Amino acid sequence: MPRFDPAHPVFDLTDSSTVLTQQICDVESVSGDETLLADAIVASLAGAEHLEIIRDGDTIVARTNLGREQRVVIAGHIDTVPLNDNLPTRYETVDGEEYLWGRGTVDMKAGVAVQLKLAAELTDPVVDITWMWYDHEEVSNELNGLTRLAANRPELFAGDFAILGEPSNSQIEGGCNGNLRAEIRAYGLRAHSARSWVGDNAIHKAADILAILDSYEAPQVEVDGLVYREGLNAVGISGGVAGNVIPDEVMVHVNYRFAPSRSGEEAVAHIRSLFEGYDVTIVDLAVGARPGLDAPLAQRFQAAVGGEAKPKYGWTDVARFSAMGVPAVNYGPGDPMKAHADDERVRVSQIEECEAGLRAWLTGRG
């Protein structure tokens, strides 16, 4: 068999999900450069007669149309954050466990590999399945492939339950926190630094903003049986005009991760109340998603894969499905703590566990 060539990729979906993970990761697909991988996915599924293939840009949808009573949507993004000397992939052993090391192994090409293999092999699942592999997840929402697909083909999102293959150590993580970013500004009066007493230094006023953040005790909030940890942090600060000018403006960039019990409006109101008296500009807002574990399909899924469901602290596209009325959870191989890390690596056994869990549930053997 010819050696796999990342420059001209075609995947043999009869390979193991671990081998597929390595091959998919070795096809570089930093956000905005997903076309080669999307082409390879389409080519690899070309012989799957049980699947209807739909392409929208670099987002690929493959779905069964078997007339089942229920439909499940299973999705994963094919882009990664930028590389940092962490490709090609390699195997390594840590504390007796075998890992696949490299960009995308955790976030989230191992999950995509499992999904592709099952999409090709499961010709007679107990539910109809809509598989989605999409581009531009790691960048702004307006570029996200699901945003575009929802505008162009909203009917493709119809389902009774959704699974997003985000890394979760091959355990269910329900819902997700919301995400808000705000710019907090304070103002002063410019002056020559040699005569600073005639000005009003705006940067010095950042101390009070930072004091609010430093003293803030982020709550832990129980939502439908799962406890979500919130977070409020400065993630950037800017100000200053020149080395000899007293600055008249400072901006502290704040990130707020809020429990899915809060609406977007409530999250905004909370930030404005904390920083009353300052100029507050909301620059990004994405509401969270409740756990989604009360749906009958979700309960059967949890019974099939086992383990204890946990909350997802970061924002994921489960929120998109939740907003469309489709309960959704995160389920994929990889430790979320290694997502985007320079030493990103996935435990091989977790890839196998994820495949086994999904296979058992989708074939009714779980």
Rank of each mutant, 00 (worst) to 15 (best):
I129T: 08
W131M: 07
L122F: 02
L180A: 08
R181E: 11
L146Y: 03
G145D: 11
N201I: 08
V114I: 10
I184F: 04
F161H: 03
H136N: 11
A150Q: 09
Q171K: 07
L116D: 10
L149M: 06
K205E: 15
N179E: 12
E155F: 02
W131F: 15
W197T: 12
M108R: 06
E142K: 02
N169S: 11
F161P: 04
D107Y: 00
A186P: 00
R181Q: 13
M132Y: 02
A182F: 06
A206F: 01
V198E: 14
A158I: 05
E166T: 05
P154W: 02
F157W: 06
N169K: 04
S170D: 00
S170G: 05
G175A: 02
N177I: 04
D208I: 09
N152V: 09
E173S: 09
N177K: 02
T105N: 07
S140D: 14
A158S: 14
R181I: 13
I172G: 01
E121V: 04
P167I: 08
A207L: 13
Y134C: 12
N141A: 15
G199K: 06
G159L: 03
W197M: 13
G178L: 09
A202Q: 08
Y134F: 15
K205M: 10
V126H: 01
K205S: 10
R103L: 09
I203S: 07
W131G: 10
A120G: 04
A151L: 14
K109V: 10
G174V: 00
V112K: 00
M108E: 10
A186S: 10
A162Y: 01
S193D: 10
T147M: 05
W197E: 15
G175H: 01
F161W: 02
D200P: 07
M132V: 15
A113Q: 02
A120N: 06
F161M: 08
E173M: 09
V106I: 09
T130Q: 06
S170N: 04
Y134K: 03
E183N: 14
N141V: 14
K117M: 10
